[in-house]
Every structure is written in C-alpha cells, then in structure tokens.
C-alpha cells in the first residue's frame, strides 16, 4: 500500500472480528471483515439482519472495540487509544447521525448543533455554520427545543451537528429510519450534497435499498464478512443483489 492510498482512505477495517459471549453461546458479529472507506465518498453498508453491519459501524466509529483485527480512522489504529483519547478523536474527527435520540432535550437546536464544539470549548466557524443552517433550512428553528421540532427537523439538526466540526468522517446509522419518505429523501439528498459539494466522507448503515441508492458505493456483509460491493448503485440493482444474498 502506498502513502497515496492511505491518505485516500478515511477509515478501514482489517480482518475485524467481534465476538459476543463465550463458548457455545459465542456469537461472531464480525468474523474477519475487511473493508476500506474512501475519502470524500458516500458509502452504504448493507446486509441482512445479523450480518454485522451495525457492529462494523460501531467499531469503526470508536464506540465499540474489536475482539481481534484492527479498525483505523485515517491512519490511527483505534485499539491503541485509551477511552480519553478515543473520546477526543470522536469529538474532533468523527460525526454521528443516529436513527433516533440524536438530540439533548434540554438544549435548543442551535446549542445541539454546536454541541461537539461546546464540549471541546471551541467556537464554531461562523461562515460554515451559516452555510449549513441555510442549506438545511433550520434558520427559523434555531431557538426551538427538540420536543418542538418535527422528526425530519430533528434529523436535520443532527446532520448539521455532524457537519459543524468538519469531521474527517461521519457515521450514520439508519438516519432516515424513523422518518416519513419525504423527510427521509430530503435528509439523504442533503447528505449526498455534503459529499459532493464539501467533500465530506459519510459511512451509512441501512437495510433499505432506496436509502442505500443515495450512496456512491454499497458494500454487502453476510455473517460478519465482506462479500461484495457495488459502485453507483440503483435501488433495483441493490434489491437484486440482496435477494441473491438472502438465498
């Protein structure tokens, strides 16, 4: 692997194994999974239930640790970091969009968006912040508490939060899973735009082919290993591929 390729890779997993439980009851959520996620790319991870797609995302994001193998963000081996450094890495270089419960209920939208910066004791880049707010159409919702926002608005606030610190990579776990189709489409379109216009890197787990089709590339997992990938996917092609996986 050359230096050039390393800088093109935002995150990768190398022969990742994640085992829950012991002995006969042991479950291998990841069973030697290897995958790379290119910088400035929008990658979707797909696979049937129990294929290990969420586990891969969690281990790549530094939320969970591998039993063996390695996970990297940039060229940092996450296994070498203690909790504090891992926390700082997440704060500085990683953004998150979860399926639900993305926002702190006591903070208003604006405070939620800048939360990672506030935690770090930093001030947001005003131009960048305004641009995100503008694109996401949140300008008139900034002083609302999460409970006063619609589901779509809440997820857009979460997306803004993920972007505000210009992280090296954003991990999204079923970001549109709880949204109606119109709100979901808006959110995904925005994520795609963030990749195209701002060279943001996004890795997203989903089980929905329509959602995955917003990505540049889809990788498929089955029984905890990488089985296939697809570039510039369409919903039909993904569905077709999934059917063969299931069989």
């Amino acid at each position: 692997m050359t230096t050039q390729t390393i800088t093109d890779i935002a995150a990768r997993m190398d022969n990742g194994v994640k085992t829950y439980g012991e002995g006969d009851a042991a479950v291998h959520a990841l069973n030697g999974a290897t995958a790379e996620f290119g910088r400035g790319r929008f990658t979707a991870i797909m696979g049937p239930s129990g294929s290990g797609k969420s586990t891969m995302l969690h281990c790549l994001a530094g939320l969970d640790t591998l039993t063996s193998g390695a996970a990297y963000i940039g060229d940092v081996d996450l296994a070498t970091l203690k909790d504090k450094d891992l926390t700082l890495l997440r704060r500085e270089r990683v953004g998150f969009i979860f399926q639900s419960f993305n926002l702190i209920p006591t903070l208003d939208a604006q405070e939620n968006i800048v939360l990672p910066l506030t935690i770090a004791g930093e001030k947001p880049d005003t131009d960048w912040y305004s641009q995100i707010i503008e694109i996401l159409g949140l300008s008139d919702r900034l002083d609302h508490l999460p409970a006063e926002l619609s589901g779509g608005q809440q997820q857009r606030v979460a997306a803004a939060r993920a972007l505000v610190s210009r992280p090296a990579i954003i991990f999204a776990d079923e970001p549109s899973g709880n949204l109606d189709s119109k709100s979901g489409a808006e959110l995904l379109a925005f994520m795609r735009r963030a990749v195209k216009e701002f060279e943001q890197t996004i890795v997203m787990v989903t089980h929905d082919p329509n959602t995955a089709a917003y990505a540049d590339r889809v990788i498929f997992l089955e029984d905890g290993v990488f089985v296939d990938e697809m570039h510039d996917p369409t919903p039909d092609a993904i569905l077709d591929r999934l059917k063969r996986l299931g069989a």
Partner: peptide, 11 residues
Amino acid sequence: LLRAVGMTRRQ
C-alpha cells in the same frame, strides 16, 4: 449521545 459526540468521562 454526549459521550458519542465527544464528552469525556470527566465532563
């Protein structure tokens, strides 16, 4: 969530 987006244990 706070921990995920970067809050340390001490915080």
